[in-house]
Design a protein around this nucleic acid. Structure first.
Length: 586
RNA sequence: GCGCCCGUAGCUCAGCUGGAUAGAGCGUCGGCCUCCGAAGCCGAAGGUCGCAGGUUCGACUCCUGCCGGGCGCGCCA
């Protein structure tokens, strides 16, 4: 409908310019928006106001002239000029209620569009290091990324979802050392736990699995492991130096084969745990991309060579630096340390280069807000490769702050005091989790109230929306119970009977859905869907409270049933994008 | 110090890429339970959109400078 109106305006503009003897102003972008209040019609255009300057005439005069040149359209009841020069379109009731028939016709497809044009887009999200279970902060990235993926798919993009597994580098060695120390502890070779090690219970679990599978295979003497090592932090030393020395010693004592076994077992255990966790949260990926594989395949070296060829690398103090400042970053960045090791950033460069080389037209990185410092350097590296950096978008997701009612939960990542995503899911359920995480703009801090998320009341937005869905199901059940016939096609034919204000409001809300998907996808903002669903549910509940659906008048009853089942369909479609279920009953 | 994000009703937040009288929910206040689901329903009050300039027909929206809050600035990941 919106497009048709835009077309009418375009024709009117042509006619107007012809009669005025003026050339067409260059950008003939016809902007239409939904009318807000009752008096503003169904759609409004600011075209006349935009033309005022190029055509050197007052906007209201232009608006009147445009309307005169506007072709007749069967669905347009009348057109008015209002305010400073808005052109307001009032649609016939048939046109408005036609959306109900369309929803029934298109079902789960309703709202999908092709603004993406099948463009291949890769979205990377969560990508937490495999050093422990996901915590509640990662949950938001997961829910956001998953919803954004669904949203873009609904808008006609060919979406590829990826998790970048940082399974290479020093953190992995620290993980291996942590597991080894726990393992030895269990085998009676107690070693003081390194200050910089990972302390969580899951380390014990991994160590126990290691024992179950390999018994004494990794047993080494505690005294040998620690002899001559520098002091750890609690003994006045440096925790970094200590753990590095510990790792080196462990490798020497175990030999590379056995050491790598521990390391891979630990990484695999944690990665699987993360996979399970996300899968249980309804978050699916097309690929888990291993950093290690990137290093092993030589892709990182190749990327660095390309940068060197481009003259974007220099040496200083024995290390290799990327000239990030030449491309808008505020510092140059080390890509290869003096000891020959590549940095995390180096593999990140290779990974992003690979995304574009795999042919994705666009890439989206969902980062936690604490990683915003990486935007500039990653973008800089792509620019150095000669890629159009506009093809890469960063979406920063702010942290979630947990509340239990009014009490704010302390969440320190130290001392294992953090709340895991799993714990949150078990407490509030996946539906509330998914919804709460995405109901706010991602760049806004999120107050996540566990009590509210669990509550079965209308104050809880998830409950409120799901309840609207269940209520429609409940009405249909009631229908059956009473043995009332429901004539579906009669309902669609009789939509003209729906002229109560509540019905008009609900129909109007339903009609907005396709435009909503388009705009939410364009701005990559799933929260718009959450916001809309609450409004839609409110329109439905209000209607429900004001009118009885199962009236004796069969034609009216069928029309109302057509309306509420259409509402149910749209709620389902919207919730599906957010990854929230649409239950038959609460 | 530099960079990124945020600042809208008492609280938590929307505000459709610059439009008309800035909207919801909670809370507060006032009414409501014979009715397809009353842990609900209906209504009202509540605002210097952090401050000050600028851009233009028009600014919550864009630009600049302040103020306040969060985060980041390693040859860490």
């Amino acid at each position: 409908m919106k497009d048709e109106l835009a077309d009418l305006l375009r024709q009117a503009l042509h006619g107007l310019c012809q009669s005025l003897g003026e050339p067409l102003p260059d950008p003939v972008a016809i902007h239409l928006e939904r009318g807000r209040g009752e008096g503003h019609g169904d759609y409004a255009s600011n075209l006349a106001m935009r033309l005022a300057k190029p055509l050197r005439r007052p906007p209201r005069e232009l608006a009147d002239a445009l309307i005169e040149h506007l072709p007749i359209h069967p669905h347009v009841e009348r057109v008015e000029v209002a305010g400073p020069g808005f052109i307001n379109f009032f649609l016939t009731q048939d046109a408005a209620s036609a959306v109900v028939a369309r929803i029934h016709r298109e079902g789960a497809e309703f709202g999908r569009c092709n603004s993406g044009g099948g463009e291949r887009i890769i979205i990377e999200f969560v990508s937490a290091n495999p050093t422990g279970p996901l915590h509640v902060g990662h949950g938001r990235g997961a829910a956001f990324g998953a919803a954004l993926g669904n949203l873009l798919e609904a808008a006609g993009y060919d979406v590829h979802r990826e998790y970048y597994v940082n399974d290479a580098g020093r953190q992995m060695h620290i993980l291996a050392a942590s597991v080894l120390v726990r393992y030895l502890e269990h085998r009676g070779e107690a070693v003081a736990f390194p200050a910089n090690g990972y302390r969580g219970d899951y380390i014990h679990d991994i160590a126990r699995d290691l024992e179950a599978n390999a018994g004494e295979r990794y047993r080494i003497a505690a005294a040998e492991l620690t002899a001559g090592l520098p002091a750890d932090a609690n003994a006045g030393g440096d925790k970094e130096a200590y753990i590095d020395a510990l790792i080196t010693r462990a490798r020497a004592l175990l030999g590379e084969t056995r050491y790598q076994e521990i390391l891979s077992a630990a990484v695999a255990a944690i990665t699987h745990d993360i996979e399970d966790d996300l899968a249980a949260f309804g978050v699916r990926y097309d690929r888990w991309y291993s950093e290690h594989s990137l290093v092993a395949s030589g892709a990182v070296d190749r990327a660095l060579e390309k940068l060197t060829t481009a003259g974007a690398i220099y040496e200083d103090n024995g290390a290799q630096w990327f000239r990030a400042t030449d491309y808008g970053d505020d510092k140059d960045r080390v890509v290869r340390r003096a000891d020959g090791q590549i940095t995390y950033f180096a593999s990140d460069i290779a990974y992003h280069l690979d995304k574009f080389e795999r042919g994705f037209a666009r890439a989206i990185d969902v980062f936690g807000a604490d990683h915003h410092g990486y935007m500039a350097r990653v973008r800089a590296s792509l620019e150095a490769f000669g890629h159009d950096t506009d093809r890469l978008t960063f979406r920063l997701v702010q942290f979630a702050i947990l509340y239990r009612g009014h009490e704010r939960l302390a969440m320190s990542t130290r001392s294992g005091e953090f709340v895991t995503l799993r714990e949150l899911r078990e407490e509030v359920g996946n539906d509330a989790g998914r919804f709460f995480y995405v109901m706010r703009r991602p760049e806004q801090h999120l107050d996540f109230d566990l009590e509210l998320a669990k509550s079965r009341s209308n104050d809880n937005p998830v409950y409120y929306i799901q309840y609207a869905h269940a209520r429609v199901c409940s009405v249909l059940a009631q229908l059956e119970e009473r043995g009332i016939e429901h004539d579906h096609s009669a309902g669609l034919a009789g939509l003209g009977r729906l002229n109560e204000a509540h019905e008009q409001a609900l129909i109007h809300a339903l009609g907005r859905y396709p435009e909503l998907i388009e705009s939410a996808a364009a701005s990559q903002e799933p929260h718009q869907i959450a916001q809309y669903l609450r409004e839609l549910a409110a329109a439905f509940h209000t209607y429900y409270n004001a009118h009885t659906f199962l009236v004796d008048d069969a034609e009216l009853r069928d029309a109302r049933l057509a309306l509420i089942t259409a509402t149910r369909q749209v709620i389902r479609n919207g919730l599906a994008i957010l990854g929230v279920s649409a239950p038959q009953s609460m």
